[in-house]
């Protein structure tokens, strides 16, 4: 292949477009994580308590945990279909840096699975009796935090893509690494609820996402090379 004909940037753009087109053709799949998110959150009032004040206190944590699980559930789709039909091998063999291609795929995946969660989150905030300010902070925290979830998740999927049944294994590998996002994400909303400044939490969340942005694509590229061989 002649690498002069296609620049890395346009290869990345093409990859994002391709993944988005595939996602749009299977819109039902796209909806699943969002529905899961809503169902998990609505289970908590049923199981814990419908009490307004208690729900308000537990709300941010519940929403974040549900977002985490919804991301985790959708994560396999980032590389697995491509692994099954051989596209992944072509990506590994392509002359462009694999880490950047992985970044493009992660971006597409975030647009398809992360963004819908953010869009639906105000509704869930209302179900959890959060105040208007807290809901705005919740959206902000999700915008800053979910990229890190996708980026770290891509490493985990890269490592487990060669294994046939990797569902539980993926969560074992990935969930401990999600701890900082959960802490700062829920912390920001909780701070906003007691009218403290949520900014430190949000900044830490953003820095964690940026850090993941810098390192996770490299790690996922290495992982994919190992898994694909």
């Amino acid at each position: 292949m002649n690498d002069q004909t296609v620049s890395t940037m346009s290869a990345m753009m093409a990859l994002v477009r391709r993944d988005l087109i595939i996602a749009m053709r299977e819109r039902g799949d796209m909806l699943q994580p969002v529905l899961f998110f809503i169902i998990v959150v609505s289970l908590f009032p049923l199981s814990v308590t419908p009490d307004k004040t208690l729900l308000m206190q537990a709300g941010p944590g519940i929403i974040w945990v549900a977002a985490l699980l919804a991301t985790l559930l959708a994560l396999d789709g980032i590389f697995r279909p491509d692994h099954e039909d051989g596209t992944l091998e072509q990506l590994v063999l392509s002359p462009h840096p694999l880490s950047l291609l992985v970044l493009a795929k992660t971006l597409a995946h975030w647009l398809v699975t992360g963004l819908p969660l953010i869009i639906i989150s105000p509704l869930l905030g209302m179900l959890m009796q959060l105040s208007g300010d807290a809901i705005i902070v919740l959206c902000g925290a999700l915008i800053l935090g979910t990229p890190a979830l996708s980026l770290i998740g891509a490493v985990g999927v890269g490592l487990t893509v060669g294994i046939r049944k990797s569902g539980v294994l993926l969560s074992l590998v990935i969930l401990p690494l999600y701890v900082p996002v959960l802490i700062f994400g829920a912390g920001a909303v909780q701070a906003a609820m007691v009218s403290l400044d949520p900014q430190p939490h949000l900044l830490l969340l953003a820095s964690f996402s940026l850090f993941s942005l810098a390192f996770c694509p490299l790690a996922s590229a290495t992982a994919l090379k190992i898994s694909v061989n």
Partner: peptide
């Protein structure tokens, strides 16, 4: 071989 290399990546990320 693959197992060692994959888990090495995980250990480093960890």
């Amino acid at each position: 071989r693959t197992a060692s290399r994959a888990s090495a990546v995980l250990a480093l990320v960890g």
